[in-house]
Every structure is written in C-alpha cells, then in structure tokens.
Design a protein around this nucleic acid. Structure first.
Length: 182
DNA sequence: GCAGTGATCATA
DNA sequence: ATGATCACTGCC
C-alpha cells in the first residue's frame, strides 16, 4: 500500500451513526439503499449492499407493529434510533428492522433484501440473525451494523409494502417499500 | 395456490 | 389455558 493513500481508513468513520436513523422511516428507508450491511460472525466479516427496504411510520401507521401499542414485542420500537428490532415471523423467519426517528416514535425500517439474499426471511438466514440481537444498537460492538460505503443508489422504485393487507386499503396501498434497480 | 411453523397477544 | 393471527418461504 502506498503512503498517503487512505484505503485503510478506520472503518469506524464509515459506520452509520444513530443520527442517520434519527429521521422519518421513509427517508431512512430510501437512504439505506446502496448502503452496506455488515455482519460479524466470529472473526469473519460479511458485507451486503442493501437492495430493498420498507418503512413503518409509527403508531398512526396501521401496518406498523407499534400501532397495536407498547407490548413485549414492540417495546424495542419505542427505543432510540439505530436500535435493532428483530422478531420471529410465521414461527421460523427472523426479520431485521432498525428503529428510526427520535426516541419514542416507534417507527422502523424493515430490511427486505441485501447482497444476494432477497426477502426478509432469507436475509435473516444469510445474516445468521439471533433473537439476542433484538434491542441492541446497530454498531460494530453488536456485530451487526451499517456502513456508508456501498454505491450511489441511482434508480429507486417505490411500491406498496408486502403482506400488510390487514392494515386496510389506505395503509397497505401506500408506497413505502423501496427497491434498488440496477 | 397453500401448508408449515411457533411466538405473541387478546380473551377468559 | 386457548385460539387467532401473522411485515414469509418453499414446494405443489
């Protein structure tokens, strides 16, 4: 490596801080596209470029889990921005979400796809998600975090969210799902 | 198109 | 204690 090059910049400078997540969920969901999701498993480090996300806006959003109030499961959604919200769907798939907005907003972004993993359940498996990560901060210390690198998200498609028909037409039709088109 | 899967939550 | 409900996937 040549002197003066900054290829070996400390990765701490690339880590998305909690301030990144302290904005509305739809804004964060868009901005997360093209960012890098990093997972440390043992000594190994795996990187995945985020390709698909969904925004859940908070208690007023009837598709959002927090719309059912503060329960054991939704408790972490009321925590600070950048908190991981991980839950088991349909008995076998662990979903990865990040809490957004100022603390107490109970909004979150669901990561639906990253790297070659398409679909939240498959992504959970690719990341070796564990329930113990629920409520932890998205930081290197936790072993699961986001980095700035990645590439510029050029073409973003917005579409209705998946599997939220129970929320009624108003909230299920709203285009809060974001897909990176290459 | 639909079965499998089990935590979670409301109801009692 | 019991039953309905799922922010899904994989196989038909």
């Amino acid at each position: 490596m040549q002197p003066g090059r900054s290829t070996a910049r400390p990765s701490g400078l690339l880590v998305l801080p909690s301030a990144f997540f302290e904005r509305s969920a739809d804004e964060v969901a868009r901005d997360l596209l093209g960012k890098v999701l990093v997972r440390r498993i043992g000594g190994a480090r795996h990187s995945f470029a985020v390709t698909e996300t969904e925004a859940y806006l908070g208690p007023h959003d009837l598709a959002c889990h927090s719309a059912r109030g503060r329960t054991r499961r939704t408790e972490v959604m009321f925590g600070p921005p950048g908190t991981l919200y991980i839950y088991l769907a349909y008995g076998l798939h662990l979903m990865l979400n990040v809490v957004t907005g100022p603390e107490g907003c109970a909004a979150a972004v669901l990561i639906r796809g990253a790297g070659s993993a398409s679909g939240p359940g498959r992504l959970g498996r690719a990341l070796a998600l564990a329930p113990v990560l629920n409520g932890k901060a998205a930081t290197p210390e936790t072993g699961l975090w986001f980095e700035e690198r990645g590439f510029l998200a050029r073409r973003i498609t917005a579409a209705p969210r998946i599997g939220v028909g129970y929320a009624g037409p108003k909230w299920s039709r709203r285009k809060l799902r974001f897909i990176l088109r290459s």
